[in-house]
Design a binder for these strands. Structure first.
Length: 274
DNA sequence: GACAATGTTACAGT
DNA sequence: CACTGTAACATTGT
């Protein structure tokens, strides 16, 4: 479930708990996920100290003295910290033991993944092979009005697909794309090159506004996503259009519509969004 | 049983 | 090359 705000929430919670801890061992389930670690690297984890946590797009990165441990939660993933004496959860595919607590990746649908990279091969995490096609991080200095303007002009996608395409701006998924377009009063079917300067300006602000609010709310817990300690996020209570098909628009009372676009549901107010 | 679900990628067609 | 739509991956819940 995780879009940028969910992964960012997990990252912040893990930073408080894990930095300074030492890894003792790692166990994998016998099922493969979308991407998987080179098994010969598993033994490198023993005695590694966790020094920092990072996020790139929807990937969570645990930095240790010599390694980058990369997690992706797919659609149904959870990264949780639990007592090692507790039983493994159903669909737990990665278990990293850190003394009395364990860091686990649980993912029923297995659209997520886990990988291990050595710093001696990849000096900065930005250079990790998995990240080579990623665009601009919305909370980085690279995210400027000018940069957005150029991307919108260069690409001729409709605006919904533009927002979902992580080679443009990173971290936006199906939920927050709908919310951003509603706030900007943009039809999801509008071509990215046809936006007026005022609309681009508003879109620029609303991308970070929606993502920042979602982070503040601890992300969205719709079906699977939970915090590191198992608690729920609160952003789902603030949706203006996502999953509100048939309900009245909170601005104009028109009925919210759902249509399929590029194989995904898009939610919008046909009267507010032009 | 059918259908849809927070993600990503590959492929066919235009 | 660039864009669009479709399917595929696997599981659960309605």
């Amino acid at each position: 479930m995780p879009e940028l705000p969910e992964v960012e929430t997990i990252k912040r919670q893990l930073s408080d708990k894990l930095v300074g801890m030492k890894i003792l061992s790692i166990e994998l389930s016998d099922k493969n996920m979308r991407f998987n670690p080179d098994k010969t690297k598993l033994k490198l984890l023993s005695q590694e100290k966790i020094t920092d946590l990072h996020r790139r797009n929807k990937y969570l990165i645990v930095e240790t003295t010599n390694l980058w441990l990369v997690f992706h939660l797919g659609m149904s993933g959870q990264v949780i910290v639990r007592g090692c004496k507790e039983d493994k959860q159903k669909h737990e595919h990665v278990t990293i033991t850190l003394g009395k607590i364990c860091l686990s990746l649980v993912d029923p649908r297995r659209f997520g993944g886990f990988a291990i990279y050595e710093k001696k091969d990849t000096a900065t995490y930005e250079k990790i092979e998995l990240f080579k096609n990623l665009g601009i991080e919305p909370f980085s200095d690279e995210y400027t009005l000018q940069a957005l303007k150029e991307l919108l002009k260069k690409r001729k996608q409709n605006i919904k697909q533009f927002l979902l395409d992580s080679s443009n701006i990173c971290g936006i998924g199906n939920i927050y794309a709908s919310e951003i377009m509603f706030l900007t009063k943009l039809s999801p079917f509008k071509s990215s090159e046809k936006l007026k300067p005022a609309q681009i300006n508003l879109l620029y602000k609303n991308i970070t506004k929606v993502l920042a609010l979602a982070i503040e709310q601890g992300g969205s817990s719709i079906s699977d996503f939970v915090h590191v300690n198992g608690q729920s996020g609160k952003m789902q209570d603030l949706y203006k259009v996502y999953s509100r098909t048939g309900q009245p628009c909170l601005v104009c009372n028109s009925i919210i519509k759902k249509e399929t676009q590029a194989g995904r549901s898009t939610f919008f107010c046909p009267s507010c969004q032009k």
